[in-house]
């Protein structure tokens, strides 16, 4: 039941922060969608607005934490070069050693190499669009506040960008889950 440091960081990056991001997204989108004067009272709108501001700010912060930990902590372990002796090949290494180098392990087999060449190459880049766009949405919600209730274009713009941020994070998260299944960090 022990987790290594690498497994712990991978779980924090993908599962803990990822789950928080999903929760914040679902709550934020529902909050923006239902922010209509004809549906709730003034007290209800005020209560929702406070929750919405906390939700979108959390989503933006979590998105930044996720990409920073992923890029600067987990990714270097993923791309660690294996200790291949001069004139040797990666596949000459014992299987238990190969498993410690996920990138090289994926690339060593034509059946799994696309998980790196396509999956990881897309994931590591597209993920960074999520916090950038989520921060813009958080600013709009915090700065405009109650104006979102009556300004439909502002609200729909925030919702559309919210979905863009989620799509970027969703692509990265899904590919990350598949890559981790194919070659987990140990």
């Amino acid at each position: 039941m022990d987790l290594t440091s690498r497994e712990t960081w991978t779980a924090l990056h993908g599962v803990v922060f990822g789950a928080l991001f999903l929760l914040a997204f679902a709550g934020g989108l529902a909050g923006l969608w239902s922010l209509r004067p004809e549906w709730v009272t003034v007290n209800g709108l005020q209560e929702r607005m406070t929750r919405l501001k906390i939700g979108v700010t959390t989503m933006a912060v979590v998105a930044w934490v996720t990409v920073v930990t992923g890029t600067w902590i987990v990714y270097p372990w993923y791309r660690d070069p294996p200790p291949i002796p001069a004139g040797g090949k990666f596949t000459d290494l014992p299987p238990e050693v190969q498993e410690k180098f996920p990138r090289a392990l994926l690339l060593s087999d034509p059946n799994t190499s696309d998980w790196h060449k396509f999956g990881m190459e897309w994931k590591e880049h597209v993920a960074w669009i999520a916090p950038i766009v989520a921060t813009a949405v958080a600013f709009v919600v915090v700065y405009y506040g109650n104006q979102l209730i009556v300004d439909k274009r502002l609200r729909y713009t925030a919702m559309a960008l919210f979905v863009v941020a989620f799509a970027a994070a969703g692509i990265a998260g899904l590919l990350g889950a598949f890559i981790t299944k194919a070659a987990p960090l140990q």
Partner: peptide
């Protein structure tokens, strides 16, 4: 119930989303 809302120009929102 009444709720007063002061409408702000869309410039700050546009600056944030175009910068993104």
């Amino acid at each position: 119930e009444e709720l007063d809302i002061v409408e702000r120009p869309n410039g700050p929102a546009m600056a944030a989303i175009i910068a993104a």
